[in-house]
């Protein structure tokens, strides 16, 4: 029997969504052209060459190493690309992905990446052509709602702020805007430099849809303990307590 990892405990919708994010088995909601993703990332002009830090591995003559023989390099590593980043800010108002879940998704599903989680933002670093593919995967999948999540390389403020009146996450640099047709447009790259054209990111999720797809536990949404008033807490809390106990006792050996 093949083993399928469970990744995250619990039977609440948030628990199920967290499992989905970690397993990488995500629904694709939109298809943003690769050139547009590259433009929003802002590291290179779409169609331009990748800058590199070393020659392609094939030309370098690698040392005889069993690990290098076992592990195939990613496309970016094989070509010697520079390491680049994409950084996301997800609103705590029921954004589909919260910072830790982007990191779990990256660490489990993306080869050769370095995810980092901060209080209100999440960054993934990888070789340039790899990070472009990973960013596109994040943009296209249900991890991202174009109104509640946005790519922000700097001035990331927005995760814990109230939403704007039109349902967009607050952005000091106004990198995305709600069009009159109801679509969200990216007008600047992730560091706030204006793009030469508006990029249509599609329609945002409705409030109900965002609540359905979110991975954040909230008392006004799905609380971590499961159903309010239930006699038994959700398994997620049991597992959390278990981990907390083991972490607290770790290394403690009363003789």
């Amino acid at each position: 029997m093949a083993y399928t990892p469970q990744y995250y405990p619990g039977s609440t919708s948030v628990g199920i969504n967290r499992r989905k994010h970690m397993s990488g088995n995500l629904e694709k909601l939109r298809d943003i052209p690769e050139a547009d993703v590259v433009a929003v990332m802002g590291h290179r002009a779409p169609g331009a060459d990748y800058s590199s830090t070393h020659p392609p591995l094939k030309e370098m003559g690698e040392p005889d190493c069993p690990i290098r023989q076992i592990v195939a390099p990613t496309a970016g590593a094989a070509a010697g690309d520079r390491v680049r980043y994409s950084q996301w800010t997800d609103s705590m108002y029921f954004a589909p992905s919260i910072p830790y879940w982007r990191s779990y998704w990256g660490a489990i599903n993306c080869k050769g990446c370095d995810p980092g989680t901060l209080s209100g933002r999440q960054i993934i670093e990888a070789r340039e052509r790899d990070i472009e593919a990973y960013t596109k995967a994040q943009y296209d999948s249900e991890m991202t709602d174009v109104a509640l999540c946005s790519m922000r390389g700097c001035t990331v403020h927005g995760h814990s702020l109230r939403l704007e009146e039109n349902g967009m996450q607050f952005d000091m640099l106004a990198r995305t805007e709600m069009g009159s047709d109801g679509n969200v447009y990216a007008v600047k790259d992730q560091v706030g430099i204006p793009l030469d054209r508006k990029i249509n990111l599609g329609k945002p999720m409705s409030e109900a849809e965002a609540k359905k797809r979110t991975t954040i536990f909230r008392v006004d949404g799905i609380p971590m303990c499961g159903k309010v008033g239930a006699r038994k807490y959700d398994e997620a809390v049991d597992a959390l307590h278990h981990m907390w106990e083991l972490r607290s006792k770790w290394g403690f050996r009363p003789e």
């Binding site: 000091m172 640099l173 106004a174 600047k188 706030g192 204006p194």
Partner: peptide, 21 residues
């Protein structure tokens, strides 16, 4: 409320105007 800067305050895009603000 949160400040609305007239240009990007820091980062690689520092100084770029924010016409929306």
């Amino acid at each position: 409320g949160p400040n609305l800067p007239r240009s990007v305050p820091y980062g690689p895009g520092r100084g770029s105007p924010i016409d929306e603000n």
